[in-house]
Design a protein around this nucleic acid. Sequence first.
RNA 1: GUGAGUGUAGCUCAAGGGUUAGAGCACCGGACUGUGGAUCCGGUGGUUGGGGGUUCGAAUCCCCUCACUCACCCCA
Length: 424
Amino acid sequence: MSQEQPKKELSAIKGTRDILPEEARIWQIAEAQAKEIFTLYGYRELRAPIIEPTELFEKGTGASSDIVTKEMYTFTDKGGRSITLRPEYTPSVVRAIIEHRLDLQPLPLRFYYIGPMFRYDKPQKGRYRQFHQIDIEVFGEKDPAVDAEIVEMAHRLLKKLGVENVLTLVNSVGCKKCRPAYGEALRKAAQAVKEKLCPDCQRKADINPLRIFDCKVETCREAASTFPKITDYLCPDCRQHFQKFLEYLDFYGINYQVEPTLVRGLDYYTKTAFEIVTENLGAQNAVCGGGRYDDMVREFGGPDLCGIGFAMGVERLLSVARIEKPRDSFVYFAYMGEEGKKQSLATARLWRSKGIECLVEFKDRGLKAHFSRANKIGADWVLIIGQDELSKGKFQLKNMLDSKQYEGTSEELAELILKQGQKT
RNA sequence: GUGAGUGUAGCUCAAGGGUUAGAGCACCGGACUGUGGAUCCGGUGGUUGGGGGUUCGAAUCCCCUCACUCACCCCA
């Protein structure tokens, strides 16, 4: 370490942040609960690399999408390859399926994954440049029952994490057969009333008329209410799929709202699209977004394998979750003298192998200072090893919560701690 | 990428052109050498985000820049 203070402080780069131990505990719990629930539904973890060839996302996410055109972290590696930090997870899974011929395994395939994604966005509430997603995918299952099942599974997880007041929005975005006709009709309707729209929406009328639906300007809202709805343009196949999807949602008793203006951001979606939104998230109110992508694998040059999945933003999830932090219970060793220190080290080593969390600090202090320290760092137990204890061969163990003190051998006291630990 | 707001101690905030930038909490130590939490006393900690300008004098006013926050866009 240099003696001079660095002139410029180093800090985490824009849109990224450190998750400090206290918060990391919450993450661990949320992740463990997600894994547990997904496993109950037959999902298995599939870990793909964080970096991928840039063209994977150009092909999979869509070369014209905002994500690919302006939000990717792309660089050239030393071999001259164009590499991108993944902005989403689905293309990686599709690549892995094709690469390892996972489609030859018994279908359907159910995968989950939790990890960081990267988008060069402007950070704001619930939106970061490095953010984390809980992601699940099902491949090779056409039945709309699975569409409803993943929504039900998402609800189960949200409930488990104490997320309240969620609203589930559902829609069908059609397929390659019926979507073009709708797009045409919508564009036509938007052009017809273009003069009445705000400048922003006039621009949208040309680029992406669907976005006019969520403008806040009153005149735009009025105009938008006269626009055609995608649900009126669905082909028989898509219509049937959507109806069955809703039927299964009803079967599960899931409260949902059909939102004909709901479109997923990415180009590859077909049929089912859904979003789970909640209050208290500001403008980024979606905690979960998902949908079906029946053409994606084939368009990648893979087999004709349909897919569906959802992603949850972990940061958003945790900002509305209510997770209780479990109290960690550990033993603090209050020793005196070199002999007491060595006895502490030996005892801690033994106790740890029994599964007891032990903390020996390498500082000889007075007993009062030891207790003060133990209290400050939140020890549940203090084991006293001083001259008296060493000569007797029996130690004093104090419970810091109820102030009761016990005397016994190492084995007796270890048993006592383990027994009490099970009670709580 | 566009717009607005905010940057003072580890945290929450005072000082609003005029001595040496303060307080609470936190941290360290003492009162207290075999038993913690309480109380009291003391201490460490700051180029006021950074740079430039105005002024006799700037945390305070102006410009630039960076970061954070919120919104637009887009999205988890």
